[in-house]
Design a protein around this nucleic acid. Structure first.
Lengths: 145, 145
DNA sequence: TATTGTTATACTCTATAACTATA
DNA sequence: TATAGTTATAGAGTATAACAATA
């Protein structure tokens, strides 16, 4: 009998696999999609900020942005006051992809919870929030960085 | 306000990151841990079966098993009746790692749900099962392989 | 002929360290 | 001196295609 964590892992795996398949035709990999997703949520960002948001090294961001620039999904723009900074910005093509991801994501979420009783759904959201909080504090406490 | 899917993704991310950190000192990466986990659950398997279970190519399994053999966590044993097959088997060291993963996983699951009312927990398990089923059927239906 | 695993090759993601340009 | 990003280098994960051994 699968436990709660089994279910969470399975749902996440299926979701991420589907997202990757949906956009792979565009030459977009999961790491690049994640970067586009962050840009869509936050607006143009310096590569340093992207590295922090994605929890990867600055060098890694250089490679991802190179690829997204080559495929026409993002562009490096100069920062108005600091010439060291490359502001990574979505192109029209990148905006389209992000809008597609957001739409798919919204539709999927609606589909997923459609069969759940509203009272149960409220409890589900509350319980998952509790689990996430607990997990965050467990790991923060156990692993001082 | 984060939705259900946001929570699931966050929980899974935190969990997998912690698992990876716990075992990285052993030279074990997420992909290798996953392979060991499957061996622990299923017993010795041909590489072909491992590739199917992990949803990766046979070539990929060759590399993972090479690494696990070099680090002493797994070994290739001859199949008793089919000399084409390499039966991948946990060594004592591999068994120890798997036992550790299973123990950590059990402890974490208990910790996570400790604050949830038993009635709510039953509903949570039921609702997550429903979400997983729905997701599986959505993707199976939408993407004929 | 079909299956199992490997060799050959290539691309992506990732990291650390040294370096350049700018602040 | 400190910060932003790049070049250099390396390892891990992944895939497809061609191949050898075995069934």
């Amino acid at each position: 009998m699968p436990d709660v964590l089994d279910r969470l892992l399975e749902i996440t795996y299926l979701f991420q696999r589907d997202m990757a398949r949906t956009f792979e035709a565009d030459g977009l990999t999961p790491a690049r999609l994640h970067l586009l997703w962050v840009l869509g949520a936050e607006g143009p960002l310096p590569q340093r900020a992207l590295a922090a948001a994605l929890d990867v090294s600055p060098r890694n961001v250089t490679g991802l942005v190179d690829a997204l620039e080559a495929s026409g999904h993002a562009a490096r723009r100069p920062h108005p006051s600091d010439r060291r900074i490359a502001l990574v910005t979505l192109t029209d093509r990148g905006e389209t992809v992000v809008a597609g991801m957001q739409r798919d994501r919204r539709i999927l979420t609606d589909e997923l919870v459609a069969g759940i009783d509203p009272g149960d759904l409220a409890r589900l959201e509350r319980d998952l929030a509790m689990v996430a909080d607990r997990l965050r504090s467990l790991f923060d406490a156990g692993r001082p960085t």
